[in-house]
C-alpha cells in the first residue's frame, strides 16, 4: 500500500508561466519514456522478481517514480497558470488547450495519450531488468533534450534533479541484474552437479 506525504521530493517553484515549455515537458508525464510509464513498469514487474533484493529495488524505485510524476505535474501546473488567450495561441499551446484546458493530462509531446504499450512486464527478471536499464537511459536522454530546450532556471533546476535520479536508478538496476545473474550461475552449477535440466523459467519459480 501507499501513503501520501504532503511534500515534493524536490522543490518546484516557477515564477514565469511558459505554455510552450509545458508542451514539451508533458512528455515526461505521459510520453513513451515518462514517469507514469516508469512507475507502472516497475510496480507491475516486481511480482516476478525472484529474490527480496530485486523485489525491493523494483518496489522502491517504482514508488519514487510516483514522486517524480508529481514533480512533473507540478511543473506543468505552474507553467500554465494565468494564461491569456493570446499567449495560448502564440505559444502553440492551443492544440492542448482545446481538449484539456490547463488540466494536467498524460500525453506525449506529440499529442499521443499515455499507453501501457510503451513498456513490458514479461515475468522474466533478466528481460525485465534489461528493459529497466534501457528505460532509465531513455528517460535521461529525454531530460537532456528538455534541458536543451529550456532556459528558465526555475524549470532547469528540478529537471536536472530528475535527470540525476535516472542515473542513480540505472546503477541500482545494474546491481539487481548482477544479483540475478550470479544467482543463476549458482543454480546452473547445482543443476549440472545433479544432472538435472529444467527450463530457466522453472528455475525462477523455484527461487
Amino acid at each position: 500500500m501507499w501513503q501520501y506525504e504532503k511534500k515534493l521530493q524536490y522543490p518546484v517553484n516557477i515564477k514565469n508561466p511558459n505554455p510552450a515549455l509545458a508542451k514539451v515537458i508533458v512528455s515526461q508525464l505521459g510520453g513513451p519514456d515518462g514517469e507514469l510509464g516508469a512507475a507502472l513498469r516497475y510496480l507491475n514487474q516486481r511480482y516476478a522478481a525472484p529474490c527480496r533484493e530485486v523485489q525491493a529495488i523494483l518496489n522502491d524505485i517504482g514508488s519514487e517514480e510516483l514522486n517524480h510524476m508529481e514533480m512533473i505535474g507540478t511543473i506543468l501546473y505552474q507553467l500554465t497558470r494565468n494564461l491569456s488567450i493570446k499567449e495560448i495561441k502564440d505559444s502553440g499551446f492551443d492544440v492542448y488547450f482545446v481538449d484539456h484546458t490547463t488540466g494536467v493530462y498524460p500525453i506525449a509531446a506529440s499529442g499521443v495519450p499515455f499507453s501501457a504499450s510503451t513498456f513490458q512486464s514479461l515475468g522474466d527478471p533478466i528481460a525485465d531488468l534489461n528493459e529497466d536499464l534501457a528505460a532509465e537511459q531513455k528517460a535521461r536522454v529525454t531530460y537532456d533534450n528538455i534541458l536543451r530546450l529550456a532556459d528558465d532556471p526555475d524549470v532547469r533546476d528540478p529537471i536536472k534533479f530528475l535527470r540525476e535520479r535516472e542515473i542513480v536508478h540505472y546503477q541500482r538496476f545494474g546491481e539487481a541484474n548482477r544479483t540475478i545473474c550470479s544467482m543463476l550461475i549458482v543454480i546452473i552449477k547445482w543443476e549440472k552437479l545433479k544432472g538435472l535440466c529444467f527450463p530457466l523459467a522453472f528455475l525462477y519459480c523455484v527461487y
Partner: peptide, 26 residues
C-alpha cells in the same frame, strides 16, 4: 516553512538514497 522543509527534504533524500543502496547491499 520552506527553510525547514528544505532540511526535511534533504534529510529525506539521504534516507531514500540509503534505502535504494541498502536494497542491493543489505
Amino acid at each position: 516553512k520552506q527553510t525547514l522543509l528544505r532540511k526535511l527534504q534533504s534529510c529525506g533524500f539521504a534516507l531514500l538514497e540509503a534505502n535504494l543502496y541498502l536494497d542491493s547491499h543489505p
